[in-house]
């Protein structure tokens, strides 16, 4: 529960009662939580304080849950998004996960256990990704290229051939990447890239 203390979850639903109920539930489970009846209000709040997870309804007023997801991703790629809806469809479920990067697609009436599990997973994912992105933030464009190819399992020689560089240059970039990201092995690099995705 202590892990959750610093996690901020935003709940967006045009049904204020439901939003408040979910917020109280999350607070009881150790999260910081806040509810909003409109996506625009939540985006304003996000500008002031970044959250780790957003639980949002899909069908709302002018801005729906998917548009909110796009706007959130543009601002903070490390935020976990969980969709909930009273109008579930297969097409929406697929879009929610594959196109809008949703962690889960919950059908109302909400299954409480599943909601809590999804939020816990989302917060953990958000933290991992946020940390990975921070560690990779100082890398140059070339270093990112080298990092991605190494994480894909290529040897220094193959990376060099692929980027038309000398092996020595690639070894230098690799050393720089490890120094900047605080990693010590190729396994660490792979884990870092996986967390950042």
């Amino acid at each position: 529960m202590s892990k959750n203390l610093s996690a901020l979850v935003h709940v967006v639903d045009d049904d204020e009662d439901l939003g408040e109920a979910v917020v109280r539930l999350l607070i009881r489970h150790g999260y910081q939580a806040e509810s909003f009846v409109a996506p625009e209000m939540m985006l304003d709040a996000c500008a002031r304080q970044e959250c780790q997870c957003v639980v949002t309804d899909i069908m709302m007023g002018e801005m729906d849950g998917f548009a909110l997801a796009d706007a959130l991703r543009a601002r903070n790629p490390a935020v976990a998004i969980i969709f909930m809806t009273a109008w579930p469809t297969t097409a929406n479920a697929v879009d929610a996960v594959r196109r809008y990067g949703g962690l889960d697609y919950l059908e109302k009436p909400i299954d409480e256990a599943r909601l809590l599990a999804a939020i816990a997973e989302g917060v953990a994912w958000s933290r991992r990704r946020g940390a990975a992105l921070i560690r990779m933030d100082r890398l140059t464009a070339r270093e990112r290229q080298v990092l991605n190819l190494l994480a894909a399992g290529m040897s220094n020689k193959r990376v060099a051939a692929s980027l038309e560089l000398s092996t020595k240059t690639v070894e230098d970039h690799r050393a720089a990447v490890m120094a900047k990201t605080g990693t010590s092995s190729i396994a660490d690099l792979i884990a870092l890239v996986r967390d950042a995705q």
Partner: peptide, 21 residues
Amino acid sequence: SVAVIHEISQPLSTLAIESRH
């Protein structure tokens, strides 16, 4: 009917959370 299901599912979610609590 679908609209009624939608309308019912909203307060049911709230009721479920609050009654358990």
